[in-house]
Computed example of a mutant assay.
Amino acid sequence: MTTVSVTLPETKYDVLIERGLLKSVGELVAKQWSARKIALVSDSNVAPLYQEQVGTSLESAGFEVHRYVFPAGEASKSLTTLADLAQQMAVDAFNRDDSVIALGGGVTGDLAGLLAASYMRGLAFIQIPTSLLAQVDSSVGGKTAVDLDNIKNIIGAFYEPDLVIVDPDTLATMKQRDLVEGYGEIVKTAALEGGEFWQLIETINSPADLITHSPELSARSIHYKASVVIADETESGTRQLLNFGHTIGHAVEALADGGLRHGEAVSIGTVAIMRVFENAGLAEKGITAKLRERLAAVGLPVTDDLLTSPKVLDKVKNDKKNRHGHLNLVYLTAIGQPKIKSIPSSEIASFLHLTVAD
């Protein structure tokens, strides 16, 4: 078993990574928590696959499990769904000694995490991510949130889990598009770190390769993200590096109105932002093509007609990470060499106009 430890000023937790780990959930959670009620939260896609298995394992370990299911999809990451789940917990008499487990992908982790953070001002929380995107990204770092209309992650909290359990075998039940989506975040992370991680990326040429190398891809991604989070838990400094590809990516994702997955949008955003910096002479020649090739190798989109829309610039200028009239754009001078450039909001349009050219 691979263990990545995340040590923060006020808490510490482990990320456990191993094939078949789902069979041992009850035993692992019992080492972390005493007997209590657990709200086991999944969406309607994941619940039929794993909720009964995980719930039974927890019950065998002495926990009282309440299985909650919400409709799958980004639309459920809302205050309405959050209130519905909280209402179910109240009816089932959950109190501050009880806990929440998120079993599912990124939407489940974000939603159940905010549920844990806000119900009775905070319950203990464990993440069991079942998608590649959640395993390498959203399950680590303590970000929990819901959307408001089409504004992503606008209402949330930093709330760390007590434990993260990653079983790469859950990827075998994913549709190819859902699997590949997570690779957008992996390439982003490998490009930030460089070295052996990027060398591993250069060997991935198909979705089948993702399955084969998923334990190592997850471990390396989580280790890098954990190191950044440890250094900057609340995103006031170096944690901003993790936004690489996200500024334009989030804008395109919002405008696509459900037509693009998060990892697909990150892929498009990564290529677009690097094209800007390479054309501006601030990045190594050929780096954009290198990133585009690695993303496209597994079928991820690397451009979109939405990039030509003036609405993209409006979304970017109003990004929630816009601080004091400036937006910090993350880019690479070379693989493994990230930098942040602060651009005044009034200059964003002129600086990013090159994103429409491929």
Results as ranks from 00 to 15, higher is better:
103 L>W: 10
103 L>S: 02
103 L>E: 08
104 G>F: 07
104 G>P: 06
104 G>R: 05
104 G>W: 09
105 G>Q: 05
105 G>T: 01
106 G>H: 01
108 T>D: 05
109 G>V: 04
109 G>T: 05
109 G>Y: 08
111 L>M: 08
114 L>P: 00
114 L>C: 07
114 L>D: 08
115 L>A: 02
117 A>L: 00
117 A>Q: 01
118 S>L: 12
121 R>G: 04
122 G>N: 11
123 L>T: 01
124 A>Y: 03
124 A>F: 05
124 A>T: 10
125 F>P: 02
125 F>K: 02
126 I>M: 05
127 Q>V: 05
127 Q>R: 14
128 I>P: 13
129 P>D: 04
129 P>A: 03
130 T>V: 08
130 T>M: 13
131 S>V: 00
131 S>I: 03
131 S>Y: 08
132 L>K: 11
132 L>F: 15
132 L>T: 06
133 L>I: 11
133 L>M: 15
134 A>D: 02
137 D>Q: 10
138 S>A: 14
139 S>D: 10
140 V>M: 11
140 V>L: 12
140 V>H: 15
141 G>W: 14
142 G>L: 06
143 K>E: 06
147 D>K: 09
151 I>A: 02
153 N>W: 09
154 I>M: 14
156 G>P: 08
156 G>T: 12
160 E>G: 00
160 E>R: 10
160 E>H: 15
160 E>Q: 15
161 P>N: 08
162 D>P: 00
162 D>N: 14
163 L>F: 09
163 L>G: 11
163 L>K: 13
164 V>C: 06
165 I>G: 11
165 I>W: 12
166 V>W: 11
166 V>C: 12
167 D>Q: 13
169 D>F: 03
170 T>F: 13
170 T>V: 13
171 L>C: 13
171 L>T: 12
171 L>V: 12
174 M>D: 01
175 K>M: 09
175 K>P: 06
175 K>D: 13
175 K>N: 12
176 Q>H: 04
177 R>E: 11
178 D>T: 14
179 L>C: 08
179 L>V: 11
181 E>A: 15
181 E>P: 04
182 G>C: 02
182 G>K: 14
183 Y>W: 03
183 Y>M: 03
183 Y>E: 01
183 Y>T: 06
185 E>W: 04
186 I>C: 02
188 K>R: 11
189 T>K: 04
191 A>H: 09
191 A>S: 11
192 L>S: 09
192 L>E: 03
196 E>H: 05
197 F>L: 01
198 W>Q: 00
199 Q>Y: 02
199 Q>R: 14
200 L>G: 02
201 I>K: 01
201 I>V: 11
201 I>G: 03
201 I>W: 06
202 E>D: 10
